[in-house]
Design a protein around this nucleic acid. Structure first.
Length: 277
DNA sequence: AAATTCCCCAACCGCACGATA
DNA sequence: ATATCGTGCGGTTGGGGAATT
C-alpha cells in the first residue's frame, strides 16, 4: 500500500520471516528434498517451489558459511575460476564449499562495479592475469558487468572520456596502453590520469617498480594496476626507442634493450628490484 | 537530527534444458 | 514428435541498513 501511494507500484519482493524458515526446514527434514513445487504446495507456506528452493539453497541448507566474508584464498579461487569460466557462477561455486552461486555472483558484481567506478579495466589481480600471459601476449581479461561486448566497450569509452575513437576493444586497449610505452626507466608507468585516481586502491596493495623481465611479461591488466606517474625524461626515452629499432624487435629483445637502457639510466631504477604487492 | 544517497545482498524473473508422458 | 513440468542458471531489481550531506 505504501509503495502504491508512492506511485512505485506494488513490491514483488517479500523477505522470508524466521517462522517461514522454520516451516521449510521442518518440511524438508520430514520429507527430504524432492519436488520443489510440492514443497510450495504442501508445506503450508504461501511461497512457490522456486522461492522455497532458492531459500533453502542460499540460506537454510547445512554447511553454508553464512555471514562469513570471503577469505583472501576464496577470493583468489573466485578470480582464478572466473578468468577461465566467465560468469558460470554455479561452476565457480563448486570449487568453494559452503558458498553459493548467488553469493559469488553478488561478490563479483560488486567488485566489477568498483573496478568500473575506479577506472580499473582488469577485474583480476595481477597474479591471476599474469597466468594468462604467454609469449608476451595476454588475453585481455573480461571486463565488467552486464550487457554485450559493445556496450561494455562503450561504457569504458564514456568512463575514460575518450571522445573520438572507434568503439572497438582494440582501440580502447591501444589508447590505454599508449602511456606506458614511453617510460624512460625500464618500468612501465602510468601517465597521470585523473579518471584513474584511486584505481590501485582496490587491491590494498603497494606497487613498486618492475624489473625489465617482469615488464616484458606484463599484461595489460597488470599495467592498469600500477599507479606510477610519468617521468620527466620522455624525450630521452623516445630518442632511445627510435635509435634501438625497438619497433622491429621481439619481446625478449625489447626486454634486453630495456635492461641495457635502465642500466645506463640515472640510477632511479634498479633493474634487480622486485615487484612488491 | 533529519534527509538523502550509496551500497550490499536477498529475492525475483525469464529462459534454457532435460526428463517424462 | 511434441507438450508439459520441474529444475537450474544468470541477470536484474528493490529493500533496508550504512554512510554522507
Amino acid at each position: 500500500m505504501e509503495a502504491r501511494r508512492k506511485g512505485k507500484g506494488i513490491s514483488r519482493k517479500r523477505s522470508w520471516r524466521s517462522e517461514e524458515d522454520e516451516i521449510l526446514i521442518k518440511y524438508i527434514k520430514r520429507n527430504g528434498l524432492g519436488n520443489w513445487n510440492l514443497v510450495g504446495k504442501n508445506s503450508g507456506l504461501s511461497r512457490d517451489g522456486k522461492s522455497c528452493r532458492l531459500r533453502w539453497l542460499n540460506h537454510l541448507q547445512p554447511g553454508l558459511k553464512k555471514n562469513l566474508p570471503f577469505s583472501e584464498k576464496e577470493k583468489l579461487v573466485i578470480f582464478s575460476e572466473h578468468a577461465v569460466l566467465g560468469n558460470k557462477w554455479s561452476d565457480i561455486a563448486r570449487h568453494l564449499p559452503g558458498r553459493t552461486d548467488n553469493e559469488i555472483k553478488n561478490f563479483m558484481n560488486i567488485h566489477k562495479k568498483k573496478c568500473l567506478k575506479n577506472g580499473v579495466i582488469s577485474i583480476y589481480p595481477p597474479e591471476i592475469s599474469m597466468r594468462y600471459t604467454h609469449n608476451g601476449i595476454t588475453e585481455f581479461p573480461k571486463i565488467a558487468s552486464s550487457g554485450d561486448h559493445d556496450s561494455v566497450v562503450h561504457q569504458l569509452v564514456e568512463l575514460m572520456d575518450l571522445p573520438s575513437i572507434q568503439n572497438t576493444e582494440k582501440d580502447v586497449i591501444d589508447i590505454l596502453l599508449s602511456p606506458y610505452l614511453h617510460n624512460p626507466h625500464g618500468s612501465f608507468e602510468l601517465l597521470p590520469q585523473p579518471h584513474l585516481a584511486g584505481a590501485h586502491q582496490s587491491w590494498n596493495t603497494s606497487f613498486n617498480v618492475l624489473s625489465s623481465e617482469q615488464c616484458s611479461n606484463l599484461s595489460i591488466a597488470d599495467l592498469l594496476y600500477s599507479d606510477y606517474s610519468m617521468d620527466d625524461d620522455l624525450d630521452c626515452w623516445l630518442q632511445f626507442i627510435s635509435s634501438s629499432g625497438w619497433e622491429e624487435t621481439s619481446l625478449p629483445l625489447q626486454s634486453r634493450l630495456l635492461r641495457e637502457y635502465t642500466a645506463s639510466a640515472s640510477g632511479i631504477f634498479d633493474p634487480n628490484q622486485t615487484m612488491v604487492w
